[in-house]
Amino acid sequence: MIVPNRYSTAGSSVAGGMGEVHACTDQHLNRKVVFKVLKSGEEDRRLLDEQKALLQLRSKHVVQLYDVVEVVDGGVSKQALVLEYIDGNTLAFHSYDVGVELLELLWQISCGLTAIHEAGIIHRDIKPNNIIRNAGGVAKILDFGLSRNSGVNAHTVSAIGTPFFMAPELWSRDAVSFDQAVDVYAFAITALVLLKEKGLPQEICKYPPVPLIPGSLVNCLQGFSPEIINLIEGCLSWDSNARPTMQYVEGILRKHLLFNKHRALLVVNETIHELHAGAAVANIIINPTVAISVRYDGMVFVVSSLMGPILINNIPAAVGMELPACCVITIVLGSSRKFVTFDVSNPEVMP
């Protein structure tokens, strides 16, 4: 294979569904890259246009597309994708226990899918084989060979994909339209098959799958919180419109990974109240009839008690109300008002 002068081949290659994958070196930047040489044909020219959309996508959890170039392969000029080289292995089935490690991995996958969906792309083939974890533990989604642009050409006239991971709506014998919810379904199936040997509900093991009985995941996901179990069950909803977005999934998983790691400050005049795992309650008492208490439950900050007319960002406060990460608490005292600022730190999940 003859590549542009900037690159040199490293010798190894692997055949794939879309063509061949070659290890190369970017001599300008002195880094390893991967060349994916596409097969000739109209279908692959169309896929190439969709791959170009990935040039706009930047996420540490999605394989990066660096360039689209021409190479000469077997005397024929062909298009090739220049992709990020990832030193790692694809995810292995039945290799994780329920716990923080799996939760952190699922969060990384959800981050990658959120970025993909925000770029207007449907991956359509999410599964462990298409997710690689590098030497630093960072998970990256790859292989966009079946991807589609959301809302433009997202339809099919036959079942295409990996059967066990295909959402129910993809199994119709008639022409069907689909959206990013198919990736949400595949994400949940991926979560289940990563678990060490546990019996999966028979409903999702059928071809095509049938509606899941509520509560079917409690046994195989035992050890996760009820909120996470319900979240994954929701991702497997028969009704694609009932599945949560990947952005919502990412937010819930992140919240659990950061359990007891948040800190917040309430400033009343010159008095500072700090809230965290070691000091979970702050009481703001103005007088015997006007007061508010804020409690940290490990994941969010909520109003735990309330007396008198109090607003949060100009919305009447109520017991159980979650405080935004940055807000102003307004305490009404007759014709005057007292303002309390509330700010939450922004801890990050790593990697």
Rank of each mutant, 00 (worst) to 15 (best):
H262R: 14
I315L: 15
E101S: 13
A119W: 04
N283G: 04
S240N: 10
K32V: 01
A242W: 00
V249F: 03
A291C: 01
F259Y: 00
M350H: 15
K32Q: 12
S237A: 14
V100P: 01
V62P: 07
K196F: 04
D343T: 12
G334H: 07
A119M: 09
P208E: 09
P208Q: 01
C235N: 08
W238Y: 14
Q79K: 14
L258M: 03
G278T: 01
V218R: 12
V332H: 14
M307F: 03
A282M: 07
P4E: 06
P208G: 13
Y7P: 06
E169I: 02
I116S: 06
H61N: 15
H273Q: 06
L275Q: 00
G75L: 02
I160S: 13
E84R: 07
R133V: 15
L65I: 08
Q180C: 12
A80F: 01
V100Y: 11
H28Q: 04
S59Y: 01
H276T: 00
D343W: 05
S345F: 04
G151W: 07
P168N: 09
Y248D: 11
I252H: 01
Q108T: 01
S158H: 07
V33W: 05
F178E: 10
R295M: 11
L113V: 08
F187W: 05
M1H: 14
V302T: 12
Q64H: 14
I141L: 06
E169Y: 11
E197K: 11
L54W: 07
S77E: 14
I232F: 01
E250I: 02
P226Y: 07
I122A: 07
Q51P: 00
E197W: 10
S12H: 14
L266V: 04
L253H: 00
Q202R: 14
D179Q: 06
